[in-house]
């Protein structure tokens, strides 16, 4: 699935939800209302599944050995793993040369992250996710 297909599918979902919402406003019957509400929830679920499918096919699973190739040296991309998720830090300003305050890219840095950032996940918020770590 590419970006174009995704946007078409999501737009369809959005349109359905919009119509159902309008219907809900003008419906008095409580039974009919629950029916419409159920339909809205179904549409939301559908949209979430579409998004999940899309992110899954973009991501890949890394083993520790595969991850170690992406250490930021010799122009390689710099990837790090935290809590099982692999992030791309190649263009993060604080990761000059694939290193960051003594930490080197290409490894699982979960324990160091916990120690230094006290599990503050907002630090990872802006990093692109490239995959998951295979345990």
């Amino acid at each position: 699935m590419d970006k174009k297909e995704l946007s078409i599918l999501l737009k369809e979902c959005y349109k359905n939800i919009f119509n159902l919402k309008n219907m809900l406003i003008y419906t008095q019957c409580p039974i009919k209302r629950t029916q419409i509400e159920d339909e809205i929830l179904f549409e939301i679920n559908k949209a979430l599944y579409i998004l999940e499918d899309y992110t899954k096919c973009r991501q890949r699973e890394f083993t520790i050995e595969e991850l170690s190739k992406y250490d930021g040296s010799l122009g390689n991309p710099a990837y790090i793993a935290v809590n099982g998720i692999v992030y791309d830090v190649s263009n993060s300003p604080v990761w000059g040369g694939g290193t960051h305050f003594g930490a080197v890219a290409g490894v699982d840095l979960t324990s160091q992250f916990e120690k230094c950032h006290k599990g503050d996940l907002t630090k990872l918020k802006n990093l692109p996710i490239v995959g998951t770590l295979k345990v």
């Binding site: 930021g72 122009g75 300003p93 604080v94 000059g96 040369g97 694939g98 290193t99 305050f101």
Partner: peptide, 19 residues
Amino acid sequence: AKKLGDLECMFKLGCRGPV
């Protein structure tokens, strides 16, 4: 920059300017 002496940004060589 790919090596020392190049005239581009030395971020990938480990420049600590951003911090």
